[in-house]
Amino acid sequence: MDEAESDAGCLVTVRNLVFRRGNRKIFDGVNLDFPQGKITAIMGPSGTGKTTLLRLMGGQLRPDSGKILVDGQNVHALGNRDLYELRKRMGMLFQSGALLTDLNVFENVAFPMREHTRLPESMIRTLVLMKLQAVGLRGARNLMPAELSGGMARRVALARAIALDPMMIMYDEPFSGQDPISMGVVVKLIRELNDSLGLTSIVVSHDVHETNTIADKIYILSEGKVVGEGTPGSLIRSTSERVQQFMTGAPDGPERFHYEAPDYSGDLLA
């Protein structure tokens, strides 16, 4: 269904998305296409609604209008059961990792398998160790989440996200709060997993540099609209002021440094 509207070769398409929080329009008619097998990044300043977008894609929030197709299915037209079936094929990496704090690393990765499959214990063990090996943490299987560094926690969460061999993964700010080394590890992992598992990756981030090194395609969001799209190279050469400001990190530009305020000298003398 809805096949005709989703571009060929795109796993996820967003059409005319409108979403409000109170009176504020977080998204105001956004269109996005996420090509199969590619890494697509969504960039934008903090608070533009990047996390909100991922929650809309996962069906945790409902749009006010517009639609989101994932693998040809309209996410918000699905019943609960179908939505849950779809989610099994969508991995999501939360900003905090969101590991279950009362389970150790092994059990965290085994969690989706135990919940959704009837695999024998020996098989689960093999699969978990394979997933942990992929993120380089096979040796950390007995640690509790509280004993992990931020970077390790995110890698465990990544192993868990690929536990059920999903068709896609959504990463929420995978680079933020990482030291340079674990940053490099995450960049490498996202690329490797994307290519070796044939995943479709969606990376949401405000880190321009890392995103540029990794993405096949980038969308820049600002104030509820797509203000730029293209390959990293084409965006750097873009003539749009807004895109330039974001890509170079200039403090003032179309995106104002100052929160809206009355005239400065008038305000001081008032």
């Binding site: 929650r55 939360f94 959704h116």
Partner: peptide
């Protein structure tokens, strides 16, 4: 409450596990 604050419940939903049931 802490599971909610640390996104564990959201995370479960996205793993297709209903946190109310589980």
């Amino acid at each position: 409450g802490l599971m909610k604050a640390t996104e564990q419940l959201s995370g479960m939903e996205m793993m297709a596990v209903d946190p109310v049931k589980r």
